[in-house]
């Protein structure tokens, strides 16, 4: 059985190496920051449309960093791999969970027109804030499990804490920048961890020599494999 276990660990190590770049962390941090971006602009006196555009811009920046980072930083350093069916199923389940959470968000927004936002818990936190927090815990917890990405458990707590904290800072604490402050506090650990991981990743996996040859044909492979060690250096020199 030990062979089976170590093969599993081998696969897990290979799979988890794609989370070592910190790009997921930066993306999630920016996404959370985007949620506070709109209210921050509103607090600065910007019109509602511009506040919404500002929030969306930060979210778009997160998306751009995610896709560009994976494409330009991670893949050229770690290579490309297609994992087995179990990982594909996990990824699909995570997508379903995230999609469901968007639906919950839309439903909450729709319900806010019915006056549900006036219902408070402990006379301070509105019910939607608690539903949002619970939704974050469930969604991120499930996604962490399906994606085998353990840092997401901690991020679930940060996402869940952001909304109630913003309400508390803005309401009872009467801080004018309560919303952006709460979201900045919650997203800072993700952004810091992401940046530290990204720097470590770039140091650990430098780009190979640009002229590293790719095996183009079977014959080329054979020719290269029969070249004695050191011969290439002598030829170059």
């Amino acid at each position: 059985m030990s062979e089976t276990i170590s093969l599993k660990e081998l696969e897990r190590k290979a799979y988890r190496s794609f989370f070592k770049d910190g790009i997921w962390d930066i993306y999630l941090g920016l996404l959370l920051l985007a949620m506070g971006g709109g209210p921050a602009l509103l607090a600065l006196g910007a019109p509602l449309v511009w506040a919404a555009i500002g929030g969306l811009a930060v979210a778009a920046l997160g998306m751009f960093i995610f896709f560009a980072g994976k494409r330009c930083l991670t893949v050229p350093r770690l290579g490309t791999v297609r994992f087995g069916p179990a990982r594909k199923v996990g990824r699909k389940r995570a997508v379903v969970v995230f999609s469901a959470s968007v639906l919950v968000g839309v439903a909450l927004f729709a319900l806010s027109w019915t006056g549900i936002t006036r219902i408070t818990v402990l006379e301070a936190i509105p019910l939607p804030a608690l539903v949002f927090a619970a939704n974050c815990i469930v969604v991120f917890g499930l996604a962490a499990y399906f994606l085998d990405f353990s840092r997401l458990y901690a991020y679930a707590v940060l996402y869940a804490a952001a909304f109630p904290l913003a309400v508390l800072l803005h309401g009872p604490a009467q801080l004018p920048y309560g919303w952006p402050l709460a979201y900045s506090i919650a997203s800072a650990p993700m952004l810091i961890i992401g940046l530290v991981l990204l720097i470590r990743f770039l140091r650990e996996y430098p780009l190979g020599p640009p002229n590293t040859p790719e095996p183009c044909s079977q014959r080329q492979l054979r020719v290269r494999s029969t070249v004695a060690p050191g011969t290439e250096e002598r030829m170059d020199g």
Binding site: L10, G79, R82, Y205, T212
Partner: peptide
């Protein structure tokens, strides 16, 4: 343990030289 991988991925995981 994977479906397919490229040369660079294998090189990173195994620490073997290209040759």
């Amino acid at each position: 343990v994977v479906e397919a991988a490229d040369f660079l991925f294998l090189q990173r995981q195994t620490n073997l030289t290209w040759g």
